[in-house]
Design a protein around this nucleic acid. Structure first.
Lengths: 124, 124
DNA sequence: CCTGTTGTATTGTCTACATAATACAATAAT
DNA sequence: ATTATTGTATTATGTAGACAATACAACAGG
């Protein structure tokens, strides 16, 4: 199943975000072996070069470790992963509040919309 | 003051979003005359062609009206603008919940983070 | 009538991104 | 030792986006 990629943003950037997400959400455990570049490229239906570019960035950030001829693993530093997860969450929260403010909703109104949306979803 | 544009997404797309935002948030009133392409391009510090492309899209969506040689105005249809505002807000709310879920936070936890972020801001 | 401003179109150039097609060195597996 | 798999690098090609530099027709304002 090819990954659901937006074509309004660089693919490699979306790959980075997606893999990062899979790591911080625990889909890949700390220290777990990752699929090879070619393998993941095939799964995501992108060019291996593009996947390679994404991994290079993830490695620069220290989130994945590369063993030259034996694939890659997620960093074993679970604390680091948790920290990243919290940072990402905080970013989303702040971005959301800014966007809603731009739309003319203050924090209370934004909260109210969220509760409403939640209620409607739990009904489904 | 050049607009704050991300270089990780097409500029014209960001211009569309920004102008749309200025309209639905009331910075431009319904029926109000908009700055010329060249003028806004200069303000935003982008190429006039790029601004033109953004306006063409906004016109296709019916949000702005073009008078061939006398500039553009915001649509006078205030109801349409309000509807768009609500749609955009709903989109943001849903996107936020999805993102937080991907990060492993359920709706209640997301709400809690939002409240916390709000409290910290009001303290400042 | 003239001039400046309007939206709009065109042509060329540059860059970033993505793909395709290979290639190579290192090493795990056999 | 051989083979397959790993990450990595290279070269070429195509496309989208952004910019620069003009150009033109339509019209508002003088």
């Amino acid at each position: 199943m090819a990954w659901d990629l937006d074509n309004d943003r660089p693919i490699y950037a979306q790959l980075i975000e997606r893999i990062q997400m899979q790591i911080v959400s625990g889909q890949y455990e700390p220290g777990e072996r990752l699929p090879s570049v070619r393998e993941l490229a095939a799964v995501a239906a992108v060019n291996p070069n593009t996947m390679q570019k994404a991994f290079a960035e993830l490695e620069r950030n220290g989130l994945v470790i590369t063993q030259r001829t034996n694939g890659r693993t997620v960093t074993a530093d679970a604390e680091r992963i948790q920290k990243l997860r919290n940072e990402l969450a905080q970013e989303r929260v702040n971005a959301f509040l800014v966007e809603m403010k731009e739309l003319g909703f203050d924090a209370d109104e934004a909260l109210e919309l969220l509760r409403k949306s939640e209620r409607e979803k739990t009904v489904e």
